[in-house]
Design a protein around this nucleic acid. Sequence first.
DNA 1: GATATTTTGGACTGGTTGGTCCAGAATGGA
DNA 2: TCCATTCTGGACCAACCAGTCCAAAATATC
Lengths: 193, 193
Amino acid sequence: MGRAREFDEQQAIDKAMRLFWRKGYDAAPLPDLLREMDLSRSSFYNAFGQKRRVLAEAVRRYMEHGMDGVLLPLFDPEAGRAQIEETFRRMVEHTAGDKGRFGCLVNNCMTEVAARDSEARKLLAAARAQVEDGFVRAVERGQAQGTIARNESPRSIGRFLLNTFSGLNVASKGRPGRAVLEDIARVALRILD
Amino acid sequence: MGRAREFDEQQAIDKAMRLFWRKGYDAAPLPDLLREMDLSRSSFYNAFGQKRRVLAEAVRRYMEHGMDGVLLPLFDPEAGRAQIEETFRRMVEHTAGDKGRFGCLVNNCMTEVAARDSEARKLLAAARAQVEDGFVRAVERGQAQGTIARNESPRSIGRFLLNTFSGLNVASKGRPGRAVLEDIARVALRILD
DNA sequence: GATATTTTGGACTGGTTGGTCCAGAATGGA
DNA sequence: TCCATTCTGGACCAACCAGTCCAAAATATC
């Protein structure tokens, strides 16, 4: 009943996600967002209601895509030590490349909007928890397989690895060389030995 | 020669620093900034020229104060392993407390403005380098004294510790319990063993 | 006390912000 | 074919943005 939508909602969210990723939330004003999503103001507000909700959808989408593939090894149901290492390798690769200059959408937004928007904070904290839990499960498997040292709990190591991840994201903003990022990841991963 | 200034410039910068720290750069609009600094628009532009320059001055001030005292042990000329540990203890203390909810001004701004403002990026990268160098020197002393393991170069460990620092800053945005932050710091500091 | 110099308050600017509104176009179901 | 329903383009809004400008006030120097 009624006129059919002329755009694909998921596709529009995907484009919004990329813009927020590149520019941040405040630095992506509505006109830019509309141009990027190829939507009229009316269609935008008709479909999403407000800008904040698009960010929420964008974050959801971002996690679905496993942070542009970086986290895919980690979310492998069989993930262990090798997948943790591969995840960090991809993270460094991504961060050192052109797209990586923008860092991680979740960590960026956490810094930018979490302080003033408690709803966004919860959403972003949940996304981070998802990654942390991925690390924890991988550590559990690694410890069971004997490839990861048992002198720290999986949760402690998982927290620590997520923390290293976030740190790398901040570091990437200063445009360090790939060698620097590799060095940080290498030292951090020694916790697994 | 002419009328004397009615405000103290350093004091005004100090107030601006606290506002940027609490709210971020974009989220601290000029009217708020003027109210906080207790300055008229004219006095503000007469003294500083533009908003960006106040951020630069604020960052300088922030580093002078050693990140509200957190970094003071690290910048001790005799700093070694004990001072590194004390710095992290203070960082966790600060982050878990009320003021710490705002995180680190430098890391916050790095995430927010570095991507679009190359001048700010250099300034913030320099501030981070200052902290990294502090860690490096402390590690050098610790290794010389035999209190820090020698299987990694001081630079590698310094980079890693700064990275952990940045990660803790991001983590703090999600309002984790103190125990979580302590756990992350504890695991990270094992690199010194 | 006169004057040159600086600071100050506040009005003003052009541009941008997120969000609303409505008339008209399109389309599904009957 | 008609109508109810939905979507769309674009005008419109008040609020806000960083930054400019100028006349008036204040004060150091002479």
